[in-house]
């Protein structure tokens, strides 16, 4: 590079940015001897110096505290929402099932309810537990009440799933309607 070939802006900026200035001795020699390039170099140096000066961070002094508070309050709200949706998911079918059982029992008569429905379940239960006859006989009382609980559980499950089935059906109906 001859003294007459001036440095490009890129060369000057690279030189300014480079930490190992000794590697660029050729550029340094040119800068020492060329007034015009030295002027450009000094201009870039000034720009770089100003651009590197810290600027004031105009955020509230308690910015971090506030953001952390917002985040924690919103996560509490999220948890509450999840709990609410879980309750509403289970509570509605549960109450509906119990209501249905009671209504049925009321109209059918409690004795009939007991004799037909629950004894049916109990018979079913006994047919399952019959092979374990020894155990079944010695725990016959426990067997009956367990059968009762099992029957009630199965009924709740049945009516509970009815709710889901109805929802699925109604969704499917919406799809059909949209097709039409």
């Amino acid at each position: 590079m001859s003294v007459n070939d001036h440095l490009s802006d890129e060369q000057i900026q690279l030189y300014l940015d480079s930490t190992a200035k000794s590697d660029s001795s050729e550029i340094q020699v040119h800068l020492d001897s060329c007034e015009s390039c030295r002027k450009t170099y000094l201009q870039y140096q000034l720009l770089t110096r100003v651009a590197s000066q810290p600027i004031s961070i105009n955020l509230s002094p308690d910015f971090a505290t506030c953001v952390a508070a917002v985040v924690s309050s919103s996560s509490v709200a999220d948890e509450q929402e999840t709990l609410q949706s879980q309750i509403s998911n289970w509570l509605v079918p549960l109450v509906a099932s119990l209501g249905a059982i009671l209504v049925w029992a009321y109209f059918a008569g409690w004795n009939h309810f007991w004799n037909t429905a629950l004894s049916g379940f109990l018979r079913g239960y006994h047919s399952v537990t019959e092979p374990l006859s020894g155990l079944s006989e010695s725990f016959s009382f426990v067997g009956d009440s367990t059968g009762l609980i099992l029957a009630a559980g199965l009924l709740i499950l049945f009516f509970g799933s009815m709710d889901k089935i109805i929802r699925t059906l109604s969704k499917a109906r919406h799809i059909n309607i949209s097709f039409i």
Binding site: I57, A64, T65, V67, A68
Partner: peptide
């Protein structure tokens, strides 16, 4: 779930975000 950890995270990086 630590609120103070998040506060520290904000304090550490708020300058960059602001820039």
């Amino acid at each position: 779930g630590s609120q103070s950890a998040f506060q520290q995270l904000v304090e550490k990086h708020q300058r960059l975000v602001y820039h």
